[in-house]
Amino acid sequence: MKFERYGIGIAKGMALTFKHLFRPPITVQYPEEKLVVSRRIRGNELVWYPDRCTGCATCAKSCPQGNIEIVTHVGDENNYVVDKFEVDTGRCMFCGLCVESCPYEALAMGLSYERAQYRRGQLVLSKEELRLSDVRQPSGYARPKIEATLPEQSLLVNWDREKGGQKLSLVPLSKKRGRGV
């Protein structure tokens, strides 16, 4: 292949790369600085509200993986009492179909996303572990009421090129909502 003036293309590319040297970084220092995730994040497993759950097992039937195990018995008021509500999150693919199908809003996806564990058995979550707690907050996925209360997601598109600098909203370390930290 012949070129009239060899090297022009490379020089143009280099000029662009050089310009990039003066652009402020758009990355963050992850464990110290965290971006705000989407309000609808399908994050940490599930959050289960025992008071709303009727034990209808719609969620278990809609799970493609068969992750949710529910055992009930008939209670005094002819209702179902949930004896066991166990989710094997090691096999969960965070599709959210269980949350979408629950007719009583008794299930929500979690908000946090750091869920590494040392043993597989720790990923099977029992009734108690699935409850709302400091580290297990619900996300707004298929739950518009929760969605409205969550902070706005940080978006890279809204990062200001002219003004430069870090314009993404960050969650400071002290307020992080991860599990097992």
Binding site: V37, S38, R39, R40, I41, R42, F94, G96, M109, S139, Y141, Q153, S154, L155, L156, V157
Partner: peptide
């Protein structure tokens, strides 16, 4: 980011 906003993943 935009996909995450719409469908959570």
């Amino acid at each position: 980011d935009l996909f995450e906003m719409v469908c959570g993943q």
